[in-house]
Simulated assay, not measured.
Amino acid sequence: MKSLPRLILDIAEQLPEGEVLRSGRFLHLGSRSAVQRALARLVVEQKLFRVDRGFYVAAVDGRFGRRSPAPTRVVRSLANALGEMIVEHGAHSANKLGLSTQIPVRCIFLSTGRSRELHIGKKVVSIRHAPKWLMALGETGAGDAVRALESLGPLWAADAVPKLHERLPEGEWSALVRARGTYPSWIWNAIQAHMGG
């Protein structure tokens, strides 16, 4: 008969990379304390990573040995598990949209939920609670544009808006314009100045 840690690991290894597991998922295999001990043992053996209280993720066996899963995959899975929206930080959006050449070094995300730090192997991922206006357009091109502008700040917004208009699909640009009441006036002023109004 397989041991409890082996049973847990068998389940974890069948999931896609970065899929988070709640400790409560394994209570059908044993008592709460036995499950906690088994999870702790798997973490010590680096077969699982404890990313947040009660959430674990399996290590990935790659060509060069065992590694931690990609932070973006873990964050997306955690967002689904918690029912939160978690998106990339505006600095990443600015780089992705070609508004900045700086590549963010730190792994930072914005969330509709509480702020927290995840520890995924040796990587620390920061998730920061964001104001509603910054998340209002969700995981869309228009939402990325608002977060990019917020990251660049009022001094650079006027220079960035024409580039955004050029790079965003027309539907995303229209969504950005229609949502003018959701974000600070300095963002709308930059958009309005570009449109000649």
Rank of each mutant, 00 (worst) to 15 (best):
G113S: 09
E17N: 13
R25L: 02
R73P: 01
I108N: 07
R32C: 07
G18N: 05
I86H: 02
T140D: 03
Y56I: 01
F49D: 02
G138I: 06
A34R: 09
L168W: 08
E150F: 15
K163V: 14
A193N: 05
G138R: 08
R116E: 09
R32G: 06
A58F: 03
P71Q: 12
N189F: 11
L27C: 02
H89N: 15
F64R: 10
V43Y: 00
R147K: 12
L82P: 04
T112I: 13
A12S: 10
T112Q: 10
R167H: 09
S33F: 07
L29G: 11
A79Q: 06
L7Y: 05
K96V: 15
W186D: 00
W188L: 03
T182M: 09
G143T: 06
P16R: 12
G196H: 06
A175R: 15
G153C: 06
A148S: 08
L99H: 05
S115R: 14
L164Y: 08
K2W: 15
K163P: 00
R53I: 14
M85A: 11
A38E: 07
S3A: 09
G196L: 01
A38R: 03
Y183G: 00
A81W: 01
L48S: 10
L27V: 02
H28R: 04
V146E: 08
I86D: 02
A40C: 01
K2S: 08
I11V: 14
A59V: 04
I191W: 07
I8N: 04
R147Y: 01
E19Y: 12
G90R: 12
R25K: 10
L168E: 02
G141S: 03
D10V: 00
I11F: 13
G171S: 11
R180S: 05
L9I: 03
H119G: 08
S174I: 13
S185W: 15
E45R: 11
V105S: 12
G90H: 10
A193E: 09
G65D: 02
L164D: 01
L29W: 02
R116T: 13
E139F: 06
F55I: 07
V57A: 07
S23N: 07
R73K: 14
R22K: 13
E88R: 15
F109K: 05
A34I: 03
I120F: 04
P162C: 01
I191M: 03
R25H: 10
R66E: 04
L152W: 00
H194F: 14
V20P: 09
S93Y: 03
R32L: 13
V177H: 02
I11M: 08
S151P: 10
Q192I: 04
A81D: 05
R73G: 12
Q36F: 02
L21G: 11
A175D: 07
L168T: 01
